[in-house]
């Protein structure tokens, strides 16, 4: 079985984000980039399937700039067999435009299973898996927390409100994963050295018109400093007054 994992290069969740001069993007200077953590979970799951035996292969596909070679190289070091980088042009991409480029590439690669994170932590859209499946005419199972592959029968557990849903799906399919499915491994040092010998194919990402455009990106307003109303039991009346009359909380 040919498994393909989608990867997105995103700012490290711990990075301090600043808005760029155009007011529409983040300023990448000084920001550490990583594999989208949810995609990393998807990759871990793909690698576990491969390592369980049965002759499966794992490829990773990333739509991004040349800088994303670093994230693909990390995926290869973790154990993926090959990488594909769809070079993104200068144009703006929303989820629909991204899905269009990914679908165009995937219709050539024809994987048996497409795994990805349920959302990317940069834009928080969570729309690409659905849009991609729709474009490819494939079934889509989202928010998967358990993955059971028996031969070619794939059973998936998914998170739903207050319950767990168990579904089976016919391959090929698009499966998006949720936290808790599989803890990503540390990149082994041996894997890093072996990744040198693996190939990363580069292709142009298909152009597509975005349907959603970012008009402005603004940092959240700065939080006001706290106020100390007093100390000890004698401060209680002032505290009650502040909570009831000013804040209307009690």
């Amino acid at each position: 079985m040919k498994i393909l994992t989608l990867l997105k290069r995103v700012p490290d969740t711990a990075a301090k984000i600043r808005v760029a001069g155009d007011g529409k993007r983040i300023d990448p200077a000084g920001v550490e980039f990583v594999i989208n953590p949810y995609d990393e979970i998807a990759l871990e799951q793909a690698l576990r399937v491969k390592e369980a035996g049965g002759g499966h292969s794992v490829a990773v596909l990333c739509l991004g700039t040349k800088d994303a070679t670093k994230e693909i190289r990390t995926a290869l070091a973790m154990g993926a067999d090959e990488g594909i980088l769809l070079i993104d042009g200068a144009g703006e991409r929303d989820a629909a435009a991204s899905a269009a480029a990914l679908a165009a590439a995937l219709s050539e690669v024809k994987p048996d299973l497409i795994l990805c994170g349920w959302k990317a932590v940069d834009t928080d859209d969570g729309a690409v898996p659905h849009l991609l499946a729709a474009r490819l005419g494939l079934p889509c199972v989202t928010l998967v927390t358990k993955f059971v592959l028996d031969g070619t029968a794939l059973t998936l557990h998914r998170e739903v409100e207050g319950a767990e849903e168990v579904v089976s799906v016919k391959l090929p399919a698009v499966v998006s994963v949720q936290k808790g499915l599989a803890e990503p491994r540390y990149t082994s040092l041996k894997g890093i050295m072996m990744a040198k010998k693996k190939t990363i194919a580069e292709k142009p990402g298909a152009a597509a018109e975005p349907k959603v455009r970012i008009l402005a990106l603004e940092p959240p307003p700065e939080r006001k400093a706290g106020r100390i109303v007093g100390t000890g039991p004698e401060a209680v009346p002032a505290l009650v007054k502040a909570l009831s009359e000013e804040q209307k909380l009690i």
């Binding site: 490290d12 711990a14 550490e32 670093k70 190289r73 990390t74 070091a77 540390y186 990149t187 082994s188 040092l189 890093i192 050295m193 990744a195 040198k196």
Partner: peptide
């Protein structure tokens, strides 16, 4: 969790080490 970045005052990591070496450092 915010990862340790190091001072790297003379950009030694960025200019004197290869990509693989940086990956080894990052993984450990």
């Amino acid at each position: 969790m915010a990862r340790f970045k190091g001072a790297d005052f003379l950009s030694i990591m960025e200019t004197q080490f290869t990509e693989e070496e940086r990956m080894v450092r990052d993984s450990v």
